[in-house]
Design a protein around this nucleic acid. Sequence first.
RNA 1: GCCCCCAUCGUCUAGUGGCCCAGGACGAAGCCCUCUCAAGGCUUAAACCGGGAUUCGAAUUCCCGUGGGGGCACCA
Length: 496
Amino acid sequence: MSIKPARTRIAPSPTGHMHLGTARTALYDYLLAKKTGGQFILRIEDTDLKRTVPGAEQEIMDGLLWLGLEYDEGPDLGGKYGPYRQTERREIYTQHAKILIDSGHAYPCFCMPEKLEKTRQAQMKRKENPHYDGTCRVLAPDEAAKRMANGEAYIVRFKMPKEGVTVARDHLRGDIITENKQLNDYVLLKSDGLPTYHLAAIVDDHEMQITHVLRGSEWLGTFPLHVNIVRAFGWEEPIWIHLSVFLKPSGKGKMSKRETAAAIKDGYSIFIKDMQELGFTPEGVLNWSALMGWGVAEDEVMTVDQMIERFNIDSLTASPAAINFQKLDHFNATHIRLFTTEDLAARLKPYFTREGLNVNDEVLLKIIPLIRERLVTLDDCLAFGTFFFREDVTPNPEDLIAKGLDAKQSAQIAQRVYQILAEQPDISHERCESPLRAYVEESGFNVNQVFGILRVAITGQKVSPPLFESMEIIGREKCLQRIKNAIEILEKMFNK
RNA sequence: GCCCCCAUCGUCUAGUGGCCCAGGACGAAGCCCUCUCAAGGCUUAAACCGGGAUUCGAAUUCCCGUGGGGGCACCA
């Protein structure tokens, strides 16, 4: 890889929620920039006024911030090559369109959209490829100039070479050769005066001195066009890297609205904002998405710093990758286990607070080692930790009855356990375990029965962190109270 | 319909002509550990899309099929 500092950019359109694909491209951009000591830039491609949605730009910036992919230049930060919002760069594009017209690489087109639509229909009917018929391409320059001067509405089209081939080099696929006759006279400047992607992206990437263009493979179709535009300007080309798309989990096609909705029902999403809310961590999401399209031989679990260390554009892959949410779970859980206790506590606290619980920081710190390896997503802490912060618990009466026993026997066990624990000077793990195990021995019941009743009594649930450690944290008073409560519940069951 | 891209276990991938009867990870199965659930340890099953060609030798190069994906807008 080149050791020259790379300038990379993520250039999303603010047309909807920020999704996984944007995040991964941004990650690679970021890794490449950091690896080479270069810069990573955010540019907002908002030239389609009709599709721009309010708030989308903010969501992108928030998403990048949450992921920790800090950009060096952007609409909110400014920078040497600004502005970084395309609607604010209008003049730059009109100037460049003019340069292309003057050099004979582009021309004004006065054709009306309705007329264009008609020819397109006719072409399709004749089973031809839909393409611009070239009416205005052959207009004499002075006539075109006259009509422009008369104030006639026009757009600007790129004058594609009709003959020969275009050789465009993608870093992952090598030379892509396209016959020029397959290419259209694409629109560069729209009637609202704003550029299309084709002009805007090419001009900006050059003006902003982008060295590596990482983008989705959906741009492969117009890639030859872009290369032709760069060459028409006489500019040096960046290194082009077209990243494969993400396929839905079945591997058949891109994520559609339907799959997206289905995923959310299962607690997954391809939208960054959702993932954050679903309890996924930036570390997990980044590690997971990094490895869809980037192959490392071993040691797949990486922090961002380790990724920077190991990143290499040569080891990116060109084939589409099916999304695998189980693997997201794995990476998320693994990174959670890597967090320091303090860090995890800080991330977990909001989940408890949101439930209206009064979180004692000391207790929170103590329960972390107990619940850490049980969390897949951060919000799982609720399932494992809520009972630590409640005054009392309300077990399901059925759950208090141990397997193979009835309510009366279970109550007897609870009684005895209460006595044993009440005799202890404190309720520490060391103190309580052996007398209880001794009771299990002599009583003839099994551990699961006895500890099961105790677990439900103390935690209110059948699945919980380790019992004795939990009791110690909850404290003697509360534990005894909860057992007493359980006994009452059981007694009510066989007395009625 | 036309154009382009891609093709290794179910999935993500390692592999750049011999180190590969193909390695890792997720998931699955089994065993161990165990107070539940996890985590952890060990083990197992699981792939080079098909056919030609080049070569002493091909998962790796080339061609043809097939399959999959993407694109054919005054959207990005």
